[in-house]
């Protein structure tokens, strides 16, 4: 060995190694998340347009004032919240039902689980197009089925009717995301030890008691996580709505509104203000959910 015999103390050496290994990922996070977010923040206080970023002037809170006084913005906030609350609760209820079903020891469970992955794996754009076709007012299979069953008397323009379009989009999201919730809850169910269930049965718990008093409390961490993940996704929904109903005010969400301002209207200032507000909305929900999550997983950590 010709190297000098002294090296840095082991622990410090290892710490330096860790930082070196971590640095590229941190740099990437800074580049694709940190910096763009800071840019968005600073642009929100300027009159920048897509073509004139360099000459942008500071305008203070003007963009925020403008956005917050825009009825379209509030419509988008309303749509986003309705979309998130409805789709996530439906997904949770259906997902729980399907998870219990898949955990019930049916034959062909593996196949069912594989099937559950299909809607999750289908690209959102594809899901949007397929459902858009199924919702078609003249040739759509949804109208055909409902007419055949006598639920509706005449064809319905699901996506064109402002009263129905949001519900139609929500149903599509439910189709696409329920499997994800199902798989998370199924994983949670499978961590409940069988003896616990057996003990509850011996103690005389009926199926409903079992569900409410044993399974749901034990499933709480999985439920909270599923809701958190789904809520985050639902609050920033874009693809589905962009493809299914494009510019309809009846379904525009905050993400749609923001991109429209940024790209279609080329108004970087107002768009960035909307982006900041969107981020704040989602951040608040995430922080609330993380706090709700804490006590449940505190022990597991």
């Amino acid at each position: 060995m010709v190297r000098p015999a002294t090296v840095a103390p082991l622990r410090r050496h290892r710490t330096r190694l860790a930082w070196a290994a971590l640095a590229p990922a941190l740099a990437a996070v800074a580049a694709v998340a940190g910096w763009p977010l800071l840019r968005t923040l600073s642009l929100a206080f300027t009159d920048a347009r897509l073509a004139t970023i360099e000459t942008a002037r500071w305008v203070g809170l003007e963009n925020f004032a403008w956005t917050l006084s825009d009825p379209d913005w509030w419509r988008a906030v309303f749509n986003t919240l309705v979309f998130a609350v409805c789709s996530v609760s439906l997904e949770l209820v259906l997902g729980l039902a399907f998870a219990l079903l898949l955990n019930a020891g049916l034959r062909g469970q593996g196949a069912l689980r594989a099937v559950a992955l299909v809607p999750w794996a289908v690209p959102t754009v594809v899901a949007a197009q397929v459902w858009r076709w199924m919702y078609h007012d003249v040739h759509g299979v949804v109208n055909e089925l409902l007419l055949g069953l006598g639920v509706i008397a005449q064809p319905v323009a699901w996506l064109a009717d402002p009263a129905l379009s949001l519900a139609a989009v929500i149903l599509t999201d439910v189709w696409k995301a329920t499997p994800f919730v199902t798989l998370l809850l199924l994983a949670g169910l499978q961590t409940i030890p069988a003896p616990v269930i057996a003990a509850a049965r011996l103690d005389g718990a009926g199926p409903l008691d079992l569900l409410i008093r044993i399974i749901l409390p034990l499933l709480r961490p999985a439920i909270v996580v599923a809701v958190l993940f789904r809520a985050l996704d639902a609050l920033r929904v874009f693809d589905l709505i962009y493809v299914m109903t494009s510019n309809s005010r009846a379904t525009a969400t905050v993400s749609i509104y923001t991109r429209q301002a940024l790209i279609d209207f080329q108004d970087l200032g107002a768009g960035s203000a909307a982006a900041v507000l969107t981020f704040a909305l989602i951040g608040m929900v995430a922080v609330a959910a993380v706090f709700a999550l804490r006590p449940a997983t505190g022990v597991a950590r």
């Binding site: 580049a31 694709v32 998340a33 910096w35 763009p36 977010l37 800071l38 840019r39 968005t40 642009l43 970023i53 609050l235 920033r236 874009f238 905050v254 993400s255 923001t258 991109r259 940024l262 790209i263 970087l268 768009g271 960035s272 909307a274 982006a275 900041v276 969107t278 981020f279 989602i282």
Partner: peptide, 13 residues
């Protein structure tokens, strides 16, 4: 992070 929140900065980057 919502994708739209970084859209402008990412575009610049």
């Amino acid at each position: 992070f919502p994708q739209v929140a970084v859209l402008a900065g990412m575009f610049e980057l």
